[in-house]
Design a binder for these strands. Sequence first.
DNA 1: CAAATAGTGTCTCTAAGACAATATCAC
DNA 2: GTGATATTGTCTTAGAGACACTATTTG
Lengths: 274, 274
Amino acid sequence: MDSEKEFLANYSLKDYERPSVTTDVAAFKIGAEDKTSYRKNPENKLQLLLIKRGGHPFKGMWALPGGFLQSDETVEECALRETQEETGVRPVSIMPVGVFSEPGRDPRGWIISNAYVSVISDESVRQKGMDDAADAQWFSVSLVRGGHGNYDLMLTYEDITLRAVLAAERTSFGRTKFRILESSGLAFDHAAIIAAALSALRAEAKSYEAIFDFLPETFTLTALQKVQETIMNVTVLPANFRRMVSRYVEETDEYVRGEGHRPAKLYRRKSPEQ
Amino acid sequence: MDSEKEFLANYSLKDYERPSVTTDVAAFKIGAEDKTSYRKNPENKLQLLLIKRGGHPFKGMWALPGGFLQSDETVEECALRETQEETGVRPVSIMPVGVFSEPGRDPRGWIISNAYVSVISDESVRQKGMDDAADAQWFSVSLVRGGHGNYDLMLTYEDITLRAVLAAERTSFGRTKFRILESSGLAFDHAAIIAAALSALRAEAKSYEAIFDFLPETFTLTALQKVQETIMNVTVLPANFRRMVSRYVEETDEYVRGEGHRPAKLYRRKSPEQ
DNA sequence: CAAATAGTGTCTCTAAGACAATATCAC
DNA sequence: GTGATATTGTCTTAGAGACACTATTTG
């Protein structure tokens, strides 16, 4: 009778066919537009990091940053590593979006992708000064309901516009899955991953879990509100927003002055209570 | 200059080291206890399917059903297939729980697991008459807060009791990750998978998304309430429960009679509106 | 009738949304 | 002062929880 030790010594996994495993990361930040007047606050845009593919397949198209899983790391660590390699910033927040494993999704062969959302503050990216390689750019994102209950995804950077149309299919447990109907300029099934990632981000923004990571340590409540409005693509009344986030933030003694209007108090995130 | 076609023809994935990929499924059902009086409704217990391992590693210990991903299926399809193979029932509901990829989690080598929750009605299992192999059993589940903010997981079937203690660590986006502190009788890291699965199920039960799948086509509102109370491990007032689920259900003309008390109207799930 | 579940009505309380009003700065 | 944002107060409304009450059946 063989012991577990003996069993493992003789065991070999290489008899089974194995997929390659990657992680793809949808890294979001909030980018500030230029001020339209000296006293107006800047407008915000939700931005997503895309990499221009230098090699086949999908050469010249844009793709989410990602890479192959290494045997000494978890998929989360892989996602963090990939994001850091591309942006210079290690994200504080990361969230799984789903596993994309449709046979044939990658023409190179059997490759399944673990998709993640990560959230980065605009300030930290500017500080680190991401290598401004033309093959890595922050695209403005818009995902809106189009005709027939479909969703229109639009990504723009300067004069580049990537578009996709996706069908939203309700699966069990109230989850939605996106199926690509049309996609131009985006590699692989990344249009579906981006749509799923943004949906997940919006769901989190509702409960104020994700929005703080877009901002530096201290922030004004108006800036926080703009972040949420930018992600969710809605507007709320300032009075109500302030009341709702009040349990998540605490005051500091500092103010932002010199903006051409009443100074705003700086707040910081309150550590979440048990 | 090489075309994409040429590139793919010459491309080979086998240069990279690849993990084995499995899915593990936490299949839950609600089991009815024996009636304590002719006119009392039966008590319910939340049950989880476990398989006794016949071979190394963890021989003789209990594990979640699961298996290796095949190249012609998605991970969801793999989870559905595995559940059907073990229970005879193809679940209507399935939900991802997370990817478990900690290096060293499987002594056989580099194996990552895609964990799923599935939900099965007790009735359908009884109808199909699951092969009552002694190596596949439905265990009663209990996951409660223990000392030091830890969680105690207890699984019981007849005279078998499996226990584990888990630390709940808050990760970003308000998610919790379970780390195994102690575990007896459960194979691999399955104690952590089970805890995560039950947490996910509870979160869904809150929004009434999961509870219908535990019951047959038509059901009484009291039965539905019991399902939710069993999963969430709470009690609610019948009047309030009825008001809350009223938008998810619709009446039928039928009643359940002969129970020693007032007949209960049967309801069915209303198809979720857009 | 007793025991048990089925089902309804309504009061209260809290949180979210709407709106009005005031405060404070830079130019 | 003007134009802009910052901040507070309060009215209204929708939904969740608590509780009291009625209805209906079988042994």
